[in-house]
Simulated scan of single mutants.
Amino acid sequence: MSLSKQELFDRIRRDSWQRQLSIRALSKKYGVHRRLVRERFPRPSHPAPPGGADVTVGVHVNVALARFS
């Protein structure tokens, strides 16, 4: 029995949600590559790395330059 692409994706999504199957388990169950399973799920957004740009350094430099002007 061959599933249409939409039916396959629906089953993958359902099994992922209901049975909490991993990407590897889903790909093995349905006989597809893990890349295809990953396509069906949104990528998690990555948080900003800690220690971002320090704006206060620029402020201190500008204040120091303003004093010498």
Rank of each mutant, 00 (worst) to 15 (best):
P42D: 08
E39F: 06
F9V: 14
R13G: 06
S4K: 12
I12A: 02
A48T: 02
G58L: 09
G58A: 05
H46C: 05
D10N: 14
E7S: 15
V63T: 11
P50W: 06
S16N: 13
R24Q: 12
R24N: 13
M1I: 13
R19D: 09
A48E: 03
V59R: 12
R35D: 13
M1F: 08
R19H: 13
A64F: 04
Q6W: 08
A48R: 03
R40N: 15
S16E: 10
S69G: 03
V59I: 10
S22C: 01
L21S: 00
A48D: 04
R19S: 12
L26H: 03
V57A: 12
M1T: 10
R14C: 02
R35T: 13
V59C: 04
F41G: 07
A25M: 11
R14Y: 12
A66E: 04
P44H: 00
Q20D: 11
G51Q: 11
S45W: 04
P49L: 07
K28R: 14
R43W: 02
R40K: 12
V37F: 05
L21H: 09
Q18C: 01
G58Q: 06
L8P: 00
H46Y: 08
N62Y: 00
R14L: 13
G51I: 04
M1R: 13
R24S: 15
P49R: 04
